[in-house]
């Protein structure tokens, strides 16, 4: 069966005053219905630009090349009105900051009803009914009263529930969650992650989860793509990624997590900062920060993603070194 979402060779470029910035540089990934793909990386790695490219929500200064297929439809180059008919119906998105993602002057109920009535010609009463069921399904107490609330009358966790209800109200086949819990407190984060997990099985949607938090990845995802400076450097099942990480950047991410260290023991740190995408280094973009860098890494062409045992990795290192160092990073990571 073909995957529900399949992105290949995606290039997203922003026009800026200083020149073109290649935020996404040849990303390929796919998600099946009922599965969660995590896209993990640090700020500026292109994970959000990837999700906005899929949704077609980029500003005018951006150009998208490559292929994005949702089911059997190609989204790149699709006319605006057709894309709009898919947004919010076939594919939906929830965002990082629930405090600012809802319209502050419109009642929550009206915002939910709007999401229904944009796509379906149903009477107001029915839309209201659906909005109420939506709120109930995300665990909001007394949903009928809550329909009349304004966003500012709700807590952050409540608002994120409203966002989720709104995204799922038309039963989309693809749900993109961009850092859905980053702005929330730990105990609220746990509630929202539970909710997304429960609803995913219920609506059987494919989920693309964008996050910087490896903990969230481990809790939520089936597959993971690790992004660095606009490219995917490693793609694996969640178990493989944590048990047998293959890319030096992934090792760095895992070993720099403070949670796995005792006081007194030094944290591993990746030296330096990610490169500017205005003028990225040739070859592997991680080379300037990599502990295992070789001469071939600094020259074009950059290592391509190649697959071994189900894990795709873009690295020139030999398999033996990767296995050895990967095991070390994974062990480091184990309690």
């Amino acid at each position: 069966m073909a995957p529900l979402l399949s992105v290949s060779g995606l290039h997203t470029t922003f026009r800026t005053d200083d020149g073109p910035v290649g935020a996404v540089d040849g990303v390929s990934l796919s998600v099946d219905a009922g599965k969660v793909l995590g896209v993990v990386g640090e700020s500026g790695c292109g994970k959000s630009a990837t999700s906005l490219s899929i949704m077609g929500l980029l500003p005018r200064t951006a150009t998208v090349e490559g292929s994005i297929r949702l089911g059997d439809r190609e989204l790149v180059g699709m006319p605006d009105d057709q894309l709009r008919a898919l947004r919010g119906a076939e594919m939906a998105m929830i965002f990082q900051d629930p405090m600012t993602s809802l319209d502050p002057v419109i009642r929550v109920g009206a915002q939910l009803e709007e999401a229904v009535r944009i796509h379906r010609d149903v009477p107001k009463q029915e839309a209201r009914e659906m909005a109420m069921k939506g709120l109930a399904s995300v665990g909001i107490p007394s949903p009928e009263e809550r329909l009349r609330s304004y966003p500012f009358e709700m807590s952050g966790g409540m608002r994120q529930r409203v966002m989720i209800a709104m995204a799922l109200i038309n039963r989309p086949r693809l749900l993109i969650a961009d850092e859905p819990t980053t702005a929330l407190d730990v105990t609220t984060q746990a509630q929202i992650l539970d909710l997304i997990r429960d609803l995913r099985t219920e609506v059987d949607a494919a989920v693309l989860l964008i996050t910087h938090d490896l903990g969230v990845v481990a809790e939520m995802c089936d597959e993971v793509a690790v992004m660095y400076a606009g490219r995917i450097v490693e793609r694996a099942s969640v178990d493989d990624l944590f048990a047998r990480p293959q890319h030096p950047y992934t090792w760095g991410l895992l070993t720099s997590l403070p949670g796995r260290h005792r006081a007194g023991e030094r944290l591993h740190q990746i030296p330096g900062t990610p490169p500017s995408l205005l003028n990225p280094p040739p070859g592997c973009r991680f080379a300037p920060r990599c502990d295992f860098v070789m001469d071939s890494c600094r020259a074009d062409p950059a290592p391509a993603l190649s697959t071994h045992d189900g894990t795709a990795v873009a690295c020139h290192l030999d398999a033996a070194t990767r296995a050895r160092e990967g095991a070390r990073a994974a062990r480091d990571d184990a309690p």
């Binding site: 965002f95 319209d103 709007e114 944009i118």
Partner: peptide, 8 residues
Amino acid sequence: RTARAKGA
């Protein structure tokens, strides 16, 4: 952006 994501 949310409004656009809804398909408005």
